[in-house]
Every structure is written in C-alpha cells, then in structure tokens.
Design a binder for these strands. Structure first.
Length: 484
RNA sequence: GUCCCCUUCGUCUAGCCCGGCCCAGGACACCGCCCUUUCACGGCGGCGACACCGGUUCAAAUCCGGUAGGGGACGCCA
C-alpha cells in the first residue's frame, strides 16, 4: 500500500489571517552569529513584523558537548546590535528534555517507533560499504521488525518511516519539492544515552510552540520530508516551510572564515552601521523592484517571502561598503559621534579640549565608508600634525608657501571667523588680491592644518578647529618650512 | 554513488507564474567626462548577462524536453 503525503497548501494570505503567524529563529550555540544566520533571523523577523505575527528565539542546544554559554551570549549580542528583537524566548531546548522523552514514548507505544540495538560501529561499517558500492547509505531496517527486546542492552529509538509513496511540500520560496519515501530511512529520534536528536526536537518544538511558518537555511530541505512524516505520525498540523538559499563567498563556495569576516559583531567592529548590514542582508536574495535602500520600516512594509530568490548569492563587501557610506552620509551626526567614540579611544585620541566631535563628524560624513575610516580621518582634529607630507609640499615653491602662510595668517586674524562661507570668501579674496591660484593657497594651508592632502575643505577645517588652533598650526608649519 | 535544489552583466538583482512592451532594466564595482583648493560627495556617459542544445509558437529570458555546470543532503551534529 503506497501512501501519498502531499500537503494541500492553502494560499499563504488566507492561512495567515485564520491563525496568527508564528515564526522562529533557532540557532545552535556553537559559535557567534554569522551573516547567514543573521539573514535567516532577519527574514523571520520581517515576516513577523509584516504580518503582525510573533517572532520567537529558540536556542537549539541539544548537543550538550558543543553548546556554550559564550555562544549564546554572542548570538544575543549580534541580534541586539542588529535590532532584531524577539517576542518570545530565548527558549532553550535543553529545558524540554522530559517533553521529548514523553513524545518518544508515545511513538513507541503506538508502534510508530521501535528500539534498535545495532551498534554505531555496525552502522558505520554498513554505511561505508553502501557508499563504496554506490548505494544510498540508509539504514537497512535490521531491527525494524525485531520481536525480542534484549534486557539491559543499549538501544536507540528509531522512527518507523512510511515505506512507499512520496512526501512532498510546497515551499514558500522553492515551490513544490517531492521526495520518494524510499529515500528516507528510519531516523534515530533518541540516542543510546536517552537524549533526543535534532530532527525530532525541532518537530516537537515547532509543533508545541505552534510555529506556523518555518523559515530556515536551505541546507534543511532534505530534513523537511522526515520532519513532515514525524508531524503526521504525531498528529500535529504541518507548518509551512520557506527555505532560504545560502550565502556564498567570492569563489562561490559556502561562506566561511577564509572569505573574511562572517561574524555580525566583526562587522560592527569594522565600523559598519547595523542599518547598513541589515539593508545589505535583506537585498541579498530578496528584492522589491529596483529599490536598493530600505529603512527598517520600509523593509518591514515591503517584505514578501515570495520575492525571495531561489538561488544562492555571493556576499559582496563592496556593496556593503557602499550602503554603509550611504548611511553614514545621511546619518544623525550626534548618533554617529557616539558610535565613533570607541574607535577614537582605541586610537588613543581624546576629544577632550578639542573640537566638538559632532562638528568633526559633519565634515567627515561624506568622506568615510566606515566608522573606522572616519576615526582615522578624524585624528588630525585632536592631534596636531607631528609631520607633514613633504612630497605634497615639494610641489610648491618654498618662498611662495611662506608668503601664503603669512598672508593667510594676517587675513584670518583680521576678521571674525564664524562660518565656512566666511573662510572660503577670505581665501578667494586672497587669491584675487595676490593673483594666486586657489590651489597654491589652499593646499599648503591644508597640509599645515592636517599634515596631509586628504582632508575636508579648508573652510570646514578652520571653522571646526577654531581660529586659535588654526593659527597655531599654520605657525608651526611655517617654522617647519623655514627650517627646511 | 543516490536523492534534492539551483543556473540573467564580475557581483546583487528586475523581468519568468499570466510568451510579444526586452537586440533584457536597476544597483555595486570598473572606465571616461563634468564639478572641484585636496580627499570625497554629486552629475553625465561607457563597459557588461538570458549556461548549452533541441522542441512548441507568427513570436521564448519567459512554455516543454534534454545536456552541462554548481550547490546541498545522505551522522547516536545541528
């Protein structure tokens, strides 16, 4: 007798309006939150926000060996930094062991699961043999119909999977996916030591938490049919599934450390803004026409799981940088100043007694792609140059440079300096009066004030630095050039 | 090996479901020009793709079949 496990999937909208949407992000705490996980979390979060549903954070720590508290903290830190707030949880799977046991027993009692006394050595041997002979390495069913129950002998519990037919589901992202049941073997749901296994816990949790839509990485596609069989054996309603494609490195291999940073927190430390990472991540695999920039609210409003692409995408730092630059350029200077502070301290720069940091930020917003770059460019405001770009200075005649310093000092001292336009006007005046070119005047002064040539506009620097400090720096540069 | 999935510019993608508006649009990157006192910002322009082969059709990126390539899964990991 063959059975067809083809789910009739209702139109998405409809099923959501009937019962409240509940989604979850379920990382295993064996490392930090990486960008792939963050994107999965983001899609869950967006769908929940978009539909007014509930977003649950669940920590899958059934692997006691590899799970750590540090990882849990790191994941929470990443989530918080990105602003992906959850409505319920974090729920720890390790708290539900009794519950899993209960359901294992139910299945056992119903004859839908059985005890298997095969040792892992035996299974490994069979698996290797099957692989070698080119067969699918599935469990051969040795204990499936075993009648005896040897006392005191260790055993695992296996799910008695349907033998014939197919198991299929309509993935929200990938469409209908069908698996022949003969591909699926009797999976272990409880280990020799009595602990439950992943595929079983996931089903119990998702069912008892009343998850309506499971959004996860597409490396779980192959787990889905066995989970569906479990749902049905347990009499639980089967949720909808949405498998999001993976993120790849530039060589199109699964993104990993060797491609560069993968940790969300690492991006924070490299000077990225959370809204930039979020915007980048949401556009990786998802789109809304030709739109590129999405505020938090816009992405919530426009997000539609059906618009998520089916294929994997390559992580591209250049585009992330562009977005980051965009958000820095348009960001609130006060907030940016606050975010910049730690980067300044790590450079041993103190803003005390120096120019107002907010004013400094304003002169740098169009010139920095990251907060790290901004910090680098901000240093000169607080630490007067201890050396000058000689190569740049060499482009000008020594006497000419000294003359410029003299005239500029004179001009700047003669009038109240309170705005960028005032300074700019003064410099233009000098040029017309002396018949100099702007480049001849501006560049030496820029070097005098910042030490180099890559800096904000002269007017911006002068006003931000203050007239007193400006004159002091020009005077120092004057001495330096004279002594040369 | 078996099963599952994927395939539009270098990269992210629009278009594909409901063939003609597509000799394929946008964005990042790259190149050039303009703006400009440096560095940037900005503006304008350029480069550049429907994996391949068949079929259906008056017409295919869009539908069908096959091929190739890539990825994933096959654990008493999650």
């Amino acid at each position: 007798m063959t059975s067809i496990y083809l789910l009739q999937v209702e139109p998405f909208q409809r099923s959501c309006s009937m019962s409240e949407l509940r989604v979850r992000f379920a990382p295993s705490p064996t490392g930090y939150l990486h960008v792939g996980g963050a994107r999965t979390a983001l899609f869950n979060w967006l769908l929940a926000k978009n539909k007014g549903g509930t977003f649950i954070l669940r920590i899958e720590d059934t692997d006691v060996e590899r799970s750590t508290k540090e990882s849990v903290d790191a994941i929470l830190e990443g989530m918080k930094w990105l602003g992906l707030d959850w409505d319920e949880g974090p729920v720890y799977q390790s708290d539900s062991f009794p519950l899993y046991k209960e359901y294992v027993q139910k299945l056992l009692d119903a004859g839908k699961a059985y005890k298997c006394y095969c040792t892992s050595e035996e299974l490994d041997a069979k698996r290797n043999l099957a692989m070698q002979e080119g067969r699918k390495p599935k469990y051969d069913g040795t204990c499936r119909d075993r009648g005896d129950h040897p006392d005191g002998q260790p055993y695992v519990v296996r799910f008695r999977a349907p033998q014939g037919g197919v198991t299929a589901f309509d993935d929200l992202i990938k469409g209908v996916i069908t698996f022949p049941n003969e591909e699926l073997d009797d999976l272990i749901i409880q280990r020799t030591d009595g602990t439950p296994t992943y595929n079983f816990c996931v089903v119990i949790d998702d069912a008892t938490m009343r998850i309506t839509t499971v959004i996860r990485g597409d490396d779980h596609v192959n787990n889905t049919p066995r989970q569906i069989q479990l749902y049905e054996a347990l009499g639980f309603p089967v949720p909808q599934f949405a498998h999001v494609p993976m993120i790849l490195g530039s060589d199109k291999a699964r993104l990993s450390k060797r491609h560069g940073a993968t940790s969300v927190i690492a991006y924070r430390d490299m000077g990225f803004l959370p809204e930039a990472l979020l915007n980048y991540l949401v556009r990786l695999g998802w789109s809304n026409g030709d739109d590129e920039i999405f505020s938090r609210d816009e992405m919530i409003q426009k997000f539609d799981i059906h618009n998520v692409g089916r294929s994997a995408s390559v992580f591209n730092t250049e585009k992330l940088l562009w977005l980051n630059a965009h958000y820095i350029k348009n960001g609130d200077p006060e907030r940016l100043a606050g975010l910049l502070l730690p980067h300044l301290s790590s450079r041993e720069v103190t803003t005390l007694g120096g120019p107002d940091l907010m004013a400094v930020v304003k002169t740098l917003q169009e010139r920095a792609q990251t907060l790290v770059e901004m910090a680098d460019r901000a240093v000169f405001y607080y630490n007067a140059p201890d050396s000058y770009d000689d190569a740049a200075l060499a482009k000008f005649d020594k006497e000419q440079v000294l003359a410029v310093f003299e005239v500029v000092t004179e001009k700047l001292s003669s009038a109240p300096i309170d705005a960028v336009v005032v300074v700019d006007a003064l410099f233009k005046e000098i040029c017309t009066e002396k018949g100099w070119k702007m480049g001849q005047v501006g560049q030496p002064v820029r070097i005098a004030l910042s030490g180099g040539t890559q800096a904000p506009g002269i007017g911006e620097i002068v006003v931000t630095l203050g007239i007193k400090e400006t004159l002091k720096r020009i005077s120092s540069a004057r001495e330096y050039v004279t002594a040369k």
